[in-house]
Design a binder for these strands. Structure first.
Lengths: 329, 329
DNA sequence: TTGAAAGCGCTAACAT
DNA sequence: ATGTTAGCGCTTTCAA
C-alpha cells in the first residue's frame, strides 16, 4: 500500500498537494495532472483509516436494526446501502434482536470507530442515544420514532391500519380480528387503534377484547395468535396482521385449518415475502421500505455534510393492494 | 471522548500502561486497578480508529455478497454477524449484485479501511482478489469457491442435487425437469450434473435437453423457466430448482396453472423462505446457511489471529426433507 | 514492570 | 497555489 508520500515524491509535489487533489481542493492543472498520474501508476488508494482518525469522521455509517433476517429490514438495508454507496459510504450491519443493551454497545462502537453517522430502527426501549448525540454523531431513526429529538422516517401507520381494515369490510367480512405487535411499540399501537376505530364505525360497537391478539412480530407468534383466534367461541371471519411475518404465521395456521382466503379474509400491513401462491386473494398494504431506507440515508448524509436545520420527521405512506373483491353476500 | 492520555493522567501512570491494560499485556495488579477505575470514571472507550491506523488492522470485517434481500444471504449474514460480534468484530455489508467491478471496489475499501479480513460470496467472474492477498488481508470464500487458493466453506452440491432428484423419483414422478442457475457458476453446475446423473440412472437415458432450463437465481427467472417447461410438447411432471428463489417462481407459475404439488412434483435446493402454505408437499434440501456463516467467520478470525496453516475447504451438507411420500401409481 | 518517544497516513492551519 | 508542520489516539520498540 503506497502512501501520500510515495505519490508526492513521484509527482514532485508536497504531500499536502496530493491530499488536496484527492479532496477536491484547488490545485493547479499541471500539478493535478502529475498527482493523478503518479497515483495511478502506484495504485494509490487513500487510507480511510488515517483519514478517519484525523478528521474524526470515517466514511462508514452504522445501520442498527433488530434482525436482518426479517425481509422488511433486509429491504431497508438494501435501500440504505445503495444510497450510501453512491455517496461513498460503507454500511456496518448491526443486529440488536430488539435488545437495548446491544444497541448501546453499538453506539459505543460507532463512537470508537468515528463513524460518520447512525441509522437506527430503535428497539422498544431504545438504548442510550445520548452517547451519540454528545459525540456529535448524526442519527436518523427509521420505522419508529424515538424519545430523543432526532430526524426520523416513519410510515403513516394510522392510514395503513385504516385502509387495510376498511378493505376487509368492503370485501364483505363482518368479524374482523387483529393480530398486533408488542403492546409497548408505537407503530403497531397506531395500526391497532386504526383497526379498532374502523371496526367500531362499521359495526356500531367496539371490537370484543378477544379479537385483539398481541405477538412479537415474528412468524411463530403469528401462528399462536391465529390459533387462539380460531379457538374463540365465536371465531372471526377475517384478520388483520400489523406486520408481514405475523401474516405469514396466520396464513400457515389458516391453511392447516382448511380456511384459506377468500373463505377467510386476510389483510397484512407490509408485503408478504416471496409468496408461493397468488397473493391476489390477500389484502396488503405495501410499504415503501426501500424508499424508507433511501430517504433515511439521504437525510443522514445531509446531516453529515453539516446541514444545520432542526430535526425533521418524514412520513411515508403505504399503498393498498386490496384483494380481488369477492363480495360474499 | 476521553483519550488514553486522560486516563493515564487520572490514574497516575503512563499512556503505555493504559494501552497495556486494555490489551491484556502484563501490568501490576495495583496499576491495573487504578487504570480500570480511571477509565470507568471517564467513560473511556478506546478509539478503534486510532488503533486501526497504528496496527494496520481494524476490528471490522467485510461481508461481500450478491444481495442481502435474498434470504439465503440474509441468513448467512446473521451467522457471520453473530460470530463476529462475539469476537469483537463489526461487519460491513457489501452488496455486489454479482458485479465483479463492485466487488473489486469493495476490496479496495477493505484495504483502505485496514479491515481485518473479508468474507466473500464470489460473483461468477470474481473481482481482483490479488489486491487483498497482496495486502495480506485474510479472505474466506463462502458458498462458492474461487480460482485463488483461499479458505472456503461450501455446500456439498452434488449430494444435494442427488438427494433432491432421487426423492422426486422415489415419490413416483417420471419426467423430472431442472431449473438451474447461470451456466458459469460452479455450484449450480454441480447440482445440475447430479440431477442429470440421477435422471440417467433412473430412466435409462439422459434427460432431453428441453428439460433443463437456466435462470439467474431470482424469482422472475424461476417463473420464466417454469413457463417454458410447461409449454413443452411433452411437459415434465416434476421439477427440481437449484436454489430457493427460483423455486418460489416455479411454484407461483404452477399455482397459476392449477398444477399444485403433489399433483406436480417440486423439489428445491435450499429452504423456501416464509412459506404461507404447508411446505410438506415440497421436497427441500435444507442448507445449513447460518452454520455456513458461522464457520466462515470462525475460520476468518483464526486467520486474523495469524493461524499459519494452508488453505482449507470445509464442505457442509444439506438435509433432505422429502415431501410426504404420496406414491402416485 | 514501566515510561519515553516514535510513528501509523492523513488533514488542516499557517506561512509563503 | 503550494509547502511545512503539527497533530488525530493509539501501539510498540527500546531503555531503564
Amino acid at each position: 500500500m503506497s502512501t501520500i508520500y510515495d505519490v508526492s515524491a513521484r509527482a514532485g509535489v508536497s504531500p499536502a498537494t496530493v491530499s488536496r487533489v484527492f479532496n477536491g481542493h484547488p490545485v493547479s492543472k499541471e500539478k493535478q495532472r502529475r498527482v493523478t498520474a503518479a497515483a495511478q501508476e502506484l495504485g494509490f488508494v487513500p487510507s480511510r483509516a488515517a483519514r478517519a482518525l484525523r478528521r474524526n469522521s470515517s466514511e462508514v455509517i452504522a445501520l442498527i436494526i433488530p434482525d436482518i433476517e426479517n425481509p422488511f429490514f433486509a429491504m431497508l438495508a438494501r435501500g440504505v446501502e445503495d444510497c450510501a454507496q453512491d455517496a461513498g459510504f460503507s454500511v456496518v450491519l448491526c443486529n440488536t434482536d430488539d435488545d437495548s443493551a446491544k444497541e448501546t454497545r453499538y453506539f459505543d462502537i460507532a463512537n470508537a470507530e468515528n463513524m460518520a453517522g447512525v441509522i437506527l430502527a430503535p428497539s422498544p426501549e431504545c438504548g442510550d442515544l445520548e452517547r451519540l448525540i454528545q459525540a456529535g454523531r448524526p442519527v436518523v431513526a427509521v420505522d419508529r420514532a424515538t424519545e430523543v429529538d432526532v430526524d426520523a422516517v416513519v410510515i403513516d401507520n394510522r392510514a395503513a391500519g385504516t385502509a387495510a381494515t376498511a378493505a376487509l369490510f368492503d370485501q364483505g367480512y363482518r368479524r374482523v380480528a387483529c393480530i398486533a405487535g408488542p403492546k409497548d411499540i408505537e407503530d403497531t399501537e397506531e395500526r391497532q387503534l386504526a383497526w379498532r376505530a374502523v371496526v367500531t364505525s362499521r359495526t356500531g360497537s367496539p371490537p370484543e377484547p378477544g379479537l385483539l391478539q398481541h405477538g412479537n412480530y415474528r412468524v411463530d407468534q403469528g401462528r399462536t395468535a391465529m390459533s387462539a383466534l380460531l379457538e374463540l367461541a365465536e371465531p372471526p371471519d377475517a384478520v388483520l396482521t400489523t406486520n408481514n411475518l405475523m401474516g405469514v404465521g396466520a396464513l400457515q395456521v389458516l391453511h392447516e385449518a382448511g380456511l384459506t382466503p377468500p373463505g377467510f379474509g386476510v389483510a397484512v400491513i407490509g408485503e408478504l415475502p416471496f409468496p408461493t401462491v397468488s397473493p391476489d386473494v390477500i389484502t396488503q398494504v405495501q410499504l415503501p421500505v426501500r424508499q424508507l431506507g433511501r430517504t433515511a440515508a439521504t437525510m443522514l448524509i445531509e446531516r453529515i455534510n453539516c446541514d444545520p436545520q432542526p430535526a425533521r420527521t418524514v412520513v411515508l405512506r403505504g399503498v393498498l393492494k386490496a384483494a380481488d373483491t369477492v363480495n360474499r353476500s
